[in-house]
Simulated scan of single mutants.
Amino acid sequence: MNVDIFVQNVKTLCKLKGTTPTSACEASGAGRNFMDNIKKGSIPSVAKVQMLSSYLGVTVSQLLGEDASDISQGPAQPYLVYRYNHMTQEDQAKVMAFVEGLSLDQGKIIPDNQQAIGHDEEFVSLYRQLTPDQQALVLAQLRGIVSSVDK
């Protein structure tokens, strides 16, 4: 287990959930000092990692950073989906049009056998087709749209 990846994943997922790692560990049943113990070199039990991953709504593989299907060279995808989910439907449509335009510019169209089921999957699928520079642009667009909605 790569401790740095694990700790970063826990921090990112807790931020998305609106909690702290300490609170998440305590609420999940893994224990209030779970993260501190891991940082100090303690090897966590499978049961405690499962409790935390379940609480955070991800698989153990995703929490450990072993699930290569979520690897991206750009910003963390759960963050993008979180921001996307907190937009109005109108703004989601704007983002999808923007992402699709970038994908078409690259000549990358989703094959019929990979049609997305819902907005989240479609967004992530299109996002993964972008170059890292394009992913950064999409993230900037999302931040701008959400910040204007929050005002």
Score class of each variant (00 low, 15 high):
Ser61Thr: 08
Ser61Arg: 07
Ser61Cys: 08
Ser61Tyr: 10
Leu63Asn: 11
Leu63Cys: 08
Leu63Phe: 11
Leu63Met: 15
Leu64Phe: 14
Leu64Ile: 13
Leu64Asp: 08
Leu64Lys: 10
Leu64Val: 09
Gly65Phe: 11
Glu66Met: 15
Asp67Pro: 06
Asp67Phe: 12
Asp67Asn: 15
Ala68Ile: 06
Ala68Arg: 06
Ala68Gln: 06
Ala68Thr: 10
Ala68Asn: 02
Ser69Gly: 09
Ser69Arg: 15
Ser69Thr: 15
Asp70Val: 03
Asp70His: 03
Asp70Asn: 05
Ile71Gly: 01
Ile71Ala: 14
Ser72Ile: 13
Ser72Gly: 13
Gln73Asn: 11
Gln73Asp: 10
Gln73Ile: 01
Gly74Leu: 06
Gly74Thr: 05
Gly74Trp: 01
Gly74Ile: 02
Gly74Val: 05
Gly74Pro: 09
Gly74Ala: 06
Pro75Ile: 08
Ala76Gln: 03
Ala76Pro: 01
Ala76Cys: 04
Ala76Thr: 03
Gln77Tyr: 06
Gln77Leu: 12
Gln77Val: 15
Gln77Arg: 10
Gln77Glu: 14
Pro78Met: 03
Pro78Phe: 00
Pro78Thr: 02
Tyr79Ala: 13
Tyr79His: 11
Tyr79Lys: 11
Tyr79Thr: 12
Leu80Lys: 00
Leu80Ile: 09
Leu80Asp: 01
Leu80Ala: 01
Leu80Trp: 02
Val81Asp: 00
Val81Cys: 07
Val81Met: 09
Val81Thr: 13
Val81Arg: 03
Tyr82Leu: 01
Tyr82Asn: 06
Tyr82Pro: 00
Arg83Val: 15
Arg83Asp: 08
Arg83Pro: 00
Arg83Thr: 12
Tyr84Lys: 03
Tyr84Ala: 04
Asn85Met: 05
Asn85Glu: 12
Asn85Pro: 05
Asn85Phe: 00
Asn85Thr: 07
Asn85Arg: 13
His86Ile: 02
His86Met: 12
His86Arg: 14
Met87Trp: 01
Met87Ser: 13
Thr88Ala: 06
Thr88Leu: 03
Thr88Met: 00
Gln89Leu: 11
Gln89Ser: 09
Gln89His: 05
Gln89Phe: 03
Gln89Ala: 10
Gln89Met: 09
Gln89Ile: 04
Gln89Trp: 04
Gln89Gly: 15
Gln89Asp: 14
Glu90Leu: 09
Glu90Gln: 08
Glu90Trp: 01
Glu90Lys: 09
Glu90Ser: 09
Glu90Arg: 09
Glu90Ile: 05
Asp91Pro: 00
Asp91Phe: 01
Asp91Arg: 05
Gln92Val: 04
Gln92Ser: 03
Gln92Cys: 04
Lys94Pro: 02
Lys94Thr: 13
Lys94Trp: 07
Lys94Asn: 13
